[in-house]
Each structure stands twice: as C-alpha cells, then as structure tokens.
Design a protein around this nucleic acid. Structure first.
Length: 201
DNA sequence: CATAGGATCGCCT
DNA sequence: GGCGATCCTATGT
C-alpha cells in the first residue's frame, strides 16, 4: 500500500538494504496493467571495491552511470543478449551501490505475467530468477533503465510483511566466479523455505 | 536427476 | 572480438 520512500534507498549500507527488501513488493504498471510480486531473493553489489560489480574500479560508462546517481532509481541491463536484469540503485550520489532482485513471489496480475512468459500454469518458473521476473513484470533494459521508483511505472511498496533475521538465508552470489576473492562473499539473501526463490546454487 | 549446449547482443578493450 | 549478475531444451542415466 505504501511506496517505500526515497530515504529507504539512501541507506549507505547496501547489505542492510538487500535484507530489508525481502518481504517488500515490487510492482509495475505498464499499459495500465498492475503486476507485482513479493521480493524473496536479492543480491548486494557493493560499488567500486566489489569485483563483481559493473562499477568495480570506479568504472563509469554510459551503462553504469545511473549507479553513480542517487539511490531510488532502477538500473536495468541486458544479460547474455536476452534477459533484462532489474536492480535498485542505493546510497548517496557518486556511490554506485545496487541491489539485484533475483526472485519474487507473484501477487498481482498473474494472468498478465503468465501471458508475458508464454506460460499457461502458475509454477515457480514464472518469476524465480532475475531474468524471468523482469520478463513477467514487463521490465526491459531499453524502456525501464534509470526510472525514478517514486513514480508510477515501477516502484516498491511495503504491505506490512516483516521478515525476521532468522528467516534469512545468506550465501555467495550467483554467476560471479570471475570476481576472484569477492566471488565468495555472502551477499545473496533469500527467505528460507520460500519456494519462489531461484534454483541457482 | 544431471549435465551440456544454444540463444543472442550490447558493452568494453 | 570476446564475453556475460541467465534460462531453456535435449539427451543420458
């Protein structure tokens, strides 16, 4: 019901934001249709010192520029030529932190999400991964990068669900083997025993 | 169930 | 020119 305020995203601790996002609801309203799901899995990308981050080493390019802006905006990029991956930019201006949303539990607009995914039946493969959840919500890197999450196309709201610390499972991030010593950092957060989390190990 | 390979394209060197 | 913060399908056990 209540959209998360800008201040939520200005938190200077991206690990904290990653945890706090669990249980919140990611919503899109595209072509007048509301689709949404509860965030059940996230990953933190900790700026210029994080070898897994696109902004590592203060790499500032056309693509990464949005991360160097103020928190509370979307960072959506194309992965493997096919999938759009949705991140929330966090922290103050000039500090390129971001949280990757890795999985959601469908709530609103399930019919529309099924249609976008080319599915007929509600199963976990509707939204249990960063590429497919974007597809379900209608998010793509061309139209939805750099959007202000205070506006009405993409936003995140709280619907009163509280996830306690002992329900949160921490592990290493997925698909970042190239990040050397940073590959093992426990910066992936999941709600324990939630079947809508991604299948990745 | 496990593993392997393909799809597909913008980004960065 | 090489490769990736992924997912799906096919094949074998």
């Amino acid at each position: 019901m209540s959209k998360l305020p800008k201040s939520f995203f200005l938190n200077e601790n991206v690990l904290e934001v990653s945890e706090q996002l669990l249980g919140k609801v990611l919503c899109t309203k595209i072509d007048g249709i509301l689709t949404s799901g509860m965030i059940v899995e996230t990953e933190a990308y900790n700026g210029i010192s994080d070898k897994a981050s696109h902004a590592f080493g203060n790499r500032r390019t056309k693509r990464t520029e949005i991360m160097f802006g103020e928190g509370g905006f979307s960072y959506v990029y194309l992965c493997y030529g096919i999938y759009s991956l949705f991140n929330v930019v966090t922290n103050l201006k000039e500090i390129p932190h971001a949280v990757l949303i890795r999985a959601i539990e469908p709530i609103d607009g399930i019919e529309k999400m099924l249609e976008r995914r080319g599915k007929s039946k509600l199963e976990t493969n509707l939204t249990s991964g960063p590429g497919i959840l974007s597809q379900a919500l209608g998010i793509n890197f061309r139209e939805h990068n750099g959007l202000d999450l205070q506006k009405d196309e993409i936003w995140i709201e709280s619907r009163g669900v509280e996830i306690s610390k002992n329900e949160i499972l921490r592990s290493s991030r997925v698909g970042v083997d190239y990040a050397e010593e940073d590959a093992k950092l426990p910066w992936r957060f999941r709600i324990q025993n939630n079947k809508w989390t991604s299948k990745a190990k």
